[in-house]
Design a protein around this nucleic acid. Sequence first.
DNA 1: TGACAAGGCTAACGACGTAAGCCATTCTGG
DNA 2: CCAGAATGGCTTACGTCGTTAGCCTTGTCA
Lengths: 171, 171
Amino acid sequence: MSRRDEILDVAVAVLEEEGPDALTMRELATRMGIRAPSLYKHVRDKDDILAGVQERALIALAQHLAAAGPGLAGLADAYRSWARAHPRLYEVATRRPLARERIAPGVEAAAAAPIVAAAGGDAHLARALWALAHGLVDLELSDRFPPGADLDATWRTALRGFEPPPSPTRS
Amino acid sequence: MSRRDEILDVAVAVLEEEGPDALTMRELATRMGIRAPSLYKHVRDKDDILAGVQERALIALAQHLAAAGPGLAGLADAYRSWARAHPRLYEVATRRPLARERIAPGVEAAAAAPIVAAAGGDAHLARALWALAHGLVDLELSDRFPPGADLDATWRTALRGFEPPPSPTRS
DNA sequence: TGACAAGGCTAACGACGTAAGCCATTCTGG
DNA sequence: CCAGAATGGCTTACGTCGTTAGCCTTGTCA
């Protein structure tokens, strides 16, 4: 494993354990047993690290979505549960502009694939679904909903508009 | 106008003109013709300023939404157009945890009111609509959609799931 | 063996938020 | 009308941040 990858490992760990404010060059260096300026032998700057973390977050999210339960509800569940399990990673994955130049091609597509599939290939619908899920998660993670709100119910309501029309099953 | 309000005016101006990185205590002070430490006579800390800016942003957004055109489409248009006209303000309005203690009561409700109305009073539906709009705007503002994507069409698709069922008009 | 790359190090810079404490002006109550 | 307090500036300074410059050791290979 390259030294750069080690740094990214540590960065992810710091982020998840202590939050974004603790993610300083000096803290990273300390955890690696070196001094802050030495990091620059392996990494362009702090933004480079963030881009690497973003890439890893997208990959992890993509994997989680790929293993989602069936249906739109399963996908939505997977999306929300991953974001709640890794709120800081979700933040760097979505809040910063996508570093398209620094991120391996295909990562973006891989993360999008399960959603596009759920949308039956309709790109606009896929984006709408993504935005809906992202909006719900983003607002939840930054505590914008009134405390005590029943967000499970909100999700169900939100997805109702996008469910395929109920196939008339015999009753 | 209180000195604090002047500071907030300047903060909004800096934010809109030069972006969040330029929003430093020293820059604010310079624009007001004083020194940075003097700001602390009127403001608790930088976070206090951000909370004030957040409050103003929410009020402005609420006013814009209240003046929206008719229907869900009108409301959606108003939401998106305000966010695109004031992307940095939209950011502080939504990305930071809501400083409920520091913000005048009612502001939150006022911003929510037009959406709740459009949802016919259904709180879950209102949150879903808000999340959808926020998600679309947030992803657009941070350049997460593929360049060149037709976002107008995406919005139309997104809202389709929430439109009231078409009343059967004579044709 | 000697050049060179890799990867550490120290020292330091400038920007940031902010605390401490001083001083002039202005307001206010006896 | 004046004493004292409140107001709102100021300078100085601290600690933290990202980052640069330049040095030195170690391992590799011609």
